[in-house]
Amino acid sequence: MVGLLGRDFEKLQQVINAAVLGSIYSLFAFGIGLPWGTMNVLNLAHGSIFLLCGFICYVLSVKARVPLNLPEAAAVAIAVGVCADWLIELIVFRQIRRRSSNDGEAQLLMVIGSVGIAGIPIAIANNVTGGVPFMILQQPTHSREHELFGASISNLEISIIALSVGIVVAAALWVRFSRHGRGLRAIAVDPEIASLMGISRSRASAIVMGISGGTAGLAGVLFGEYLASLQSTSGEDLLLKGFAVVVVGGVGSLWGLLVGAFALAVGEVVVTATTSGVWTDGVSFALIIVILLLRPNGIFGRATVDRT
């Protein structure tokens, strides 16, 4: 890959760029992949929850002038994300599950419901900001830069990589080895038998949605700071990428999700660095199609690994 990227420091810099981008994709996609792979909930409102968390930080910090630093903003955003996803679970998903005649119908209705919910935070943010990009903190965080063989990497970028990969790896291990994780996997395989075995689906849903919302909040703050600003479309722009990452990695596999995120990021960076950026999305998604043709269940889909 490095050989393709061009000159001197640019090679290493682009590797760093790909690592940061892959980390952002993995953290964001994790929030889609976890409920989808364990509870069969494809939550298409995840992008707008990501936006909502960054937007609430903006309202508090910039509009209400509450002096927040990055860790405090991250704590606020995580809390907002957890509460928002719990509300969605309680008001929408749980009601749909209760009223649907079968699982297939419930899954479809939850996708439709999440699309409806997605519009609300976007409309609010758009109305307040007028579509203008907004900073999530009063002042941008000036994180320290480190020189690395001519390339540079900031503390913020190191934090993004460490937190994203750390969270996904920890979650993958938790799902595989913990009691709750085994419960989730049981629900994913057969919800009815799992509930006969005493596993509470409602409780499991609340845990999964809470984790998903929290990571949306963390991603919103980290990404907002990394890009210097967000705008009302930021979550939707990421949603398609997150969805692709989960599908490529294999629904239900968090390890696959990690590989899918970095594969997409590397593909995008290589295309941007070597061709006109016009081709970035086209080539990246063509690669995804090729992967899915070769492995229809994704890189780590059910054919190789059952559930995480």
Binding site: R7, E10, N17, D237, T272, A273, T280
Partner: peptide, 21 residues
């Protein structure tokens, strides 16, 4: 030379690295 991105691309860091190169 130039570096092109799509208006929907949020993270433009790889295009900026190309530009600075």
């Amino acid at each position: 030379g130039s570096a092109a991105v799509l208006s929907t691309t949020s993270d433009i860091s790889s295009a900026v690295s190309k530009l600075l190169a």
